[in-house]
Amino acid sequence: MKEKGAAIWALRTAFPHTLPILAGFTVLGMSYGVYARASGFSFWVPVCMAVVIFGGSLEFVAVSMLLGAFAPVQTFLMALMIQARHLFYGISMLERYKGMGWKKVYLVYALCDETFSINCSVQVPEGVDKGWFMFFVSLLNQCYWICGTAIGALLGGVIPFSTEGLDFAMTALFVVIFLDRWLQEKKHWTALIGVLGAAGCLLAFGAEDFMIPTMACILVLLTAFRRPIERGMEQE
């Protein structure tokens, strides 16, 4: 009974912290749902991906991968590269997620960018159970994403105007994330390695086969130029 009370209280204190994510995920989830429908998939495809993958960037990319030829190795490697940043969320959360018992399994599973941004910085109020608080932040955020996706996937089937060109939402999303990164750093070595490495490999290997060479190229260049890049980062 005491546990239940603590959980409900944590839910009520966690909810206000997730409101910005509610707004963001509803809109982004909806555009993802509409995009998946416009790409020719049924309602359940984007919704299942929202549950299983729960990572916005990769879900957009997964839609375009599903439209291409079956390439399991490339799919897996690309997914690993796109999601690699989560490794560093995990490293930052080692201490905070310690001793959470069974909740830790879900906390780790649902550690997306937005959940990380709240859970790594939030001061859990006095008297509120930390584990339940962070559990509900994660759960609420995932619910917003799934609901947004489901609404978009429903609307996507009945939208009365042409959705031609809607797939640009993915490009625009990545441009914006990339631009944010670019503006944050003084030296742009890593950003340029990504763009030029990919563009070079695209020219050399063609649109079908350039992703694995690109990922290898990025890792090699980042490793080779580690010293100057790190020096540049220290100046920031």
Binding site: M170, F174, H188, G194, I229
Partner: peptide, 24 residues
């Protein structure tokens, strides 16, 4: 090295994804 990759990868990966979107 892992810490370094954590800081260096994101910008490179999103640059790569922009190119991926424009590949066709």
């Amino acid at each position: 090295y892992v810490q370094y990759l954590g800081k260096a990868l994101p910008a490179a990966i999103f640059g790569m994804l922009v190119v991926y979107c424009l590949k066709d």
